[in-house]
């Protein structure tokens, strides 16, 4: 294969470099501003800071001192942890059922799973079901409606189907029940796909805004997404009493950016560990789905 022309190669490289900068700069300046003190922000005409010359963690101290942001963090962490564990368990079990050849009822169920990927029932019917189940303004409304994601079921089923057949055959000869096969053979061999799907679920729970907006009514049950909308997107002033502050608050901008960082950082932390599995997980879903 001949080498490509240097000019073409350079243009491609520059285009990719520019996109990388466009992705990184917003994150960087948000983080920098959240750590900047009042003088640095004022010196910058009250705007976003690229480099926090006056470094302070006072925004974080003020926000984590109890009050609305601290509570939202705890709620989001709990919903994410409980939701992800439940989702993983239920999704793996459903995918296992659908992956075994000739399993009773697996065919119609698979069709229902596929249909759920293609269409969604709509906002009003979803709301009415949650309401009828008595889940309005309840944390479970953030978990149960999104507990099973059809796409994730399909990806996991495809992964299970690719496990060596001989394992299942020898287990059947040994008289192992399907539960034993799942726990002793399937799950231990599926750590990669469990990690990817777990990440997908965790990110969805952590980011959940739509369901929180629809179903959570009291402000003291807000997860991070609603706090973010109120104080950062809508720029509602953060009052001292709301965050339980005892002294004067740092500048609003740096408080807002600290909220934004706290909503973003958990994703940034888990991201590198699981990133290597992405391509694999998505590809299985695409090829088999």
């Amino acid at each position: 294969m001949e080498t490509p022309k240097p000019l073409v190669q350079a243009i491609k490289f520059i285009a990719l470099l520019v996109s990388v900068v466009l992705v990184i700069v917003p994150f960087w300046t948000v983080i920098a501003t959240s750590f900047a003190d009042e003088e640095t922000i004022n010196a910058n005409a009250g705007g976003m800071v690229m480099w926090p010359t006056g470094f302070t963690v006072s925004s974080y101290e003020a926000l984590l001192n109890g009050g609305v942001v601290t509570r939202a963090l705890v709620i989001s962490v709990l919903v994410t942890v409980v939701g992800t564990l439940l989702s993983l368990a239920v999704t793996a079990c459903l995918a296992y059922w659908l992956s075994r050849p000739g399993a009773l009822g697996a065919k119609p169920m698979l069709l229902l799973v596929l249909g759920s990927v293609l269409f969604s029932p709509g906002l009003i019917p979803n709301y009415l079901v949650v309401k009828e189940l008595g889940l309005l303004d309840n944390y479970w409304s953030l978990i149960l409606p999104v507990m099973v994601n059809g796409f994730n079921v399909i990806v996991m089923r495809a992964f299970f189907q690719n496990l060596p057949r001989e394992l299942f055959e020898s287990a059947a000869i040994d008289g192992a029940s399907s539960a034993t096969v799942l726990v002793k053979i399937v799950l231990p061999l599926s750590k990669a796909v469990l990690a990817v799907i777990g990440l997908f679920y965790a990110v969805a729970y952590w980011n959940a805004f739509f369901n929180a907006l629809l179903y959570i009514q009291s402000a003291d049950k807000w997860p991070m997404a609603l706090v973010l909308r109120t104080f950062v997107v809508n720029q509602t002033t953060i009052g001292g009493d709301q965050v339980g502050a005892t002294e004067a608050l740092p500048p609003q901008l740096s408080l807002q950016m600290a909220i934004l960082v706290m909503a973003t950082v958990p994703i940034l932390i888990v991201y590198p560990f699981l990133q290597k599995h992405f391509a694999k997980g998505v590809m299985i879903g695409a090829v088999k789905g």
Binding site: T91, L94, A106, N126, G150
Partner: peptide
């Protein structure tokens, strides 16, 4: 084993 997930899906996607 598979049914809980199936029921959840039906309850919130089809019901």
């Amino acid at each position: 084993i598979g049914l809980p997930g199936g029921i959840a899906l039906i309850l919130f996607q089809y019901f």
